[in-house]
């Protein structure tokens, strides 16, 4: 062992110790005065649920000294909120903003000039599966039937979804079509205002199938009114274990809806650390897991650099996909 490496080791150790010494009191010292969570949508949606459930769990576990306020800032699938956060809330250490794939689509389609590089992506706190559903008396018994029908005539099956074309629900069908070699631009996709309305259209027999999130379908599934042809996942759902997946039916396509949060640019490292730690503690708490279970969300989490790399990669792949479908140049 050379002197040089020894000294570097010592220096590293000293640095680490210093960092630890600094970090611990600092993160303990930072406490949000007026914690706030912006839900970039109207009350009642997925983003709103992220904020309100977290606020609820924080309150139950006493993780924050004061109640976290929830502000709804709807507009442009997250475009309004991110613009507001970047221009007006720079350096606001008390602020979390709810996010999900929808925001990635907003960015990939160029509906906002901003990307994740302009804010501080903090964490993914849960995931949700999407799937393909038909009425209980439908002639499509499994994914194979559906794929066969699509291959014979791509526009023979009408899909109801809860978002505009070029966003989440549409992309799910498009991905399926692409994977089985069907032209995704020939699909019949009927967009509705939210998963609930898409479900109504399916139940009323106005469309042949629905492509929505599992949580939106769970009530009707339990009642036996609809059938799940496939969840778009590798592994089965942790709550609904009897639903088949795409992978086990030989179609290698998956699509996770992630739920997470980001922070405003210019926030202090201590604050980022504090919130990251607080959220880590939250997702490990039994209170959170009961709530998560109720909502039918999966316990998939990503933190720090892993999450940053994940959203960056996602952004690139969505951009390519939208280009292929004719949604972005």
């Amino acid at each position: 062992m050379t002197l040089h490496s020894l000294s570097s080791l010592a220096r590293n150790a000293a640095l680490a110790a210093a960092a630890l010494a600094l970090a611990t009191p600092a993160s303990a010292a930072f406490a949000p005065e007026r914690p706030e969570c912006i839900a970039p949508a109207n009350p009642g949606g997925g983003w709103d649920t992220i904020c309100r459930t977290s606020a609820n769990v924080f309150q139950k576990t006493g993780a924050l000294k004061s109640t976290m306020y929830v502000t709804n800032m709807p507009g442009g699938s997250g475009a309004v909120a991110i613009a507001n956060v970047i221009t007006k809330r720079k350096g606001d250490n008390d602020l979390l903003v709810a996010a999900s794939n929808s925001l990635s689509f907003t960015m990939a389609a160029g509906r906002t000039p901003h990307t994740y590089a302009d804010v501080v992506p903090l964490a993914q706190i849960a995931a949700e599966y999407g799937g393909f559903f038909v009425k209980a008396d439908s002639k499509y018994k499994n994914l194979g039937d559906l794929v066969a029908a699509l291959k014979a005539n791509p526009s023979s099956v009408s899909f109801a979804g809860g978002s505009a074309p070029g966003s989440m629900d549409h992309i799910k069908v498009a991905l399926l079509a692409k994977t089985v070699g069907v032209d995704p631009t020939k699909l019949v996709y009927v967009p509705f205002q939210g998963g609930g309305e898409a479900m109504t259209a399916l139940l009323g027999g106005h469309t042949d199938a629905a492509t929505i999130d599992l949580a939106e379908a769970s009530a009707q599934l339990e009642a036996g009114k609809i059938r799940c042809l496939a969840l778009m996942a590798e592994k089965r759902s942790s709550k609904y274990k009897d639903l088949p997946t795409t992978f086990e039916q030989g179609v290698k396509v998956k699509f996770d809806t992630w739920r997470g949060v980001y922070m405003a640019p210019g926030t202090s490292p201590e604050a980022v650390q504090f919130w990251s730690d607080t959220l880590k503690k939250m997702v490990a708490s039994p209170e959170w897991n009961t709530e998560r279970e109720k909502l039918g969300w999966e316990p998939t989490t990503r933190f720090g650099d892993e999450f940053k790399a994940f959203v960056k990669e996602e952004h690139a792949s969505y951009k390519a996909l939208l280009k292929e479908l004719g949604f972005a140049k």
């Binding site: 109207n42 009350p43 709103d48 009961t290 709530e291 909502l295």
Partner: peptide, 11 residues
């Protein structure tokens, strides 16, 4: 819609 969200949170 808001009530639905609240009910889901109440399991």
């Amino acid at each position: 819609a808001v009530m639905l969200g609240a009910l889901m949170m109440l399991d």
